[in-house]
Simulated scan of single mutants.
Amino acid sequence: MLKEIGSVFSFLTIIPTTNANLETIARYMYLFPLVGIVIGVIIGGFGFGLSEAGVDPLIVGLLVVAAIAIITGIHHTDGLADSADGLMVRGTKEKKLAAMKDLSTGSAGIVAIVMYLIGMVVAISLSNGFELFRALLFSEIIAKFSMVLMASIGQSAALGSNSPFLQLMKDKRKLGMAFLFTLTPLLIFGGSTGMVAFAVGISFTMFLVAISSRSFGGITGDVLGATNELTRLSSLLIFVSL
């Protein structure tokens, strides 16, 4: 099991492993929230330390966003840009999918990334101390659960690297385990705000499944990545607003 956990951790971060393969990672996708806990503790601890050291809130936000990008390798952020490009293309689902696969980032993708980064920096700057740690921790856990939920209820738009994830996550027992890994820390430490963020995260994921199914004919790897980023941001906004 440790090898499998290591493979999943390597997939979601820049930490390399020699044993990872896509099918193994997809088979253990339900462990994503556990990796979210580890990433959240690291990022949250970093943000907490900067905040307690008296660093300007906007600088804290900028540095924390940079740390997230470094640890996760920004491949999910790239999915957000590709998804935005695909959504803005007029025409058939095939044209939209082709736009997502284009190696160059279009204007929609650039705007989406800029707005996302601004939103992240501003959201993080609105909190401090332990509340910032809590917001960063739980937003990361919910973001990882959102990908598991999407893979569990969605259908693949086209044969590709996303296919194993959507096929192997149809086991409801695995979704139940992911739900348990997510809900347990939220119930213990997240409080009512955590539960609101979790409920919004689930609703937002369902909305993105509907949008992706209508626009692309299903879920792609880019859409999974975009869901991770957007759910993280929405969760952060809830934590700093309530």
Results as ranks from 00 to 15, higher is better:
Gly6Tyr: 09
Phe9Ala: 06
Phe11His: 03
Thr13Met: 07
Ala20Phe: 04
Asn21Ser: 08
Ala26Asp: 14
Tyr30Met: 00
Tyr30Trp: 12
Gly40Val: 03
Val41Ala: 09
Val41Leu: 12
Phe46Asn: 05
Ser51Ile: 07
Gly54Trp: 02
Pro57Ala: 04
Ile59Tyr: 06
Ile59Asn: 06
Leu62Val: 05
His76Gly: 00
Thr77His: 01
Gly79Arg: 04
Ala81Trp: 15
Asp82Ile: 06
Ser83Tyr: 01
Asp85His: 11
Gly86Phe: 04
Val89Tyr: 01
Arg90Asp: 08
Glu94His: 10
Leu97His: 07
Ala98Leu: 01
Ala99Asp: 06
Lys101Asn: 06
Gly119Pro: 07
Val121Arg: 09
Val121Leu: 09
Ile124Cys: 09
Leu126Tyr: 15
Gly129Asp: 13
Ser139Pro: 02
Met147Asp: 14
Met147Gln: 11
Leu149Cys: 11
Met150Pro: 03
Ala151Asp: 01
Ser152Trp: 15
Gln155Gly: 09
Ser161His: 13
Ser161Asn: 13
Ser163Gln: 07
Phe179Ala: 00
Phe181Asn: 01
Leu183Asp: 09
Thr184Glu: 00
Ser192Glu: 12
Met195Gln: 09
Val200Ser: 10
Gly201Asp: 14
Ser203Trp: 05
Phe204Glu: 02
Val209Asn: 14
Ser215Cys: 04
Ile219Asn: 12
Ala226Cys: 02
Asn228Pro: 08
Leu233Trp: 12
Val240Gln: 13
Val240Arg: 15
Ser241Tyr: 06
Leu242Pro: 01
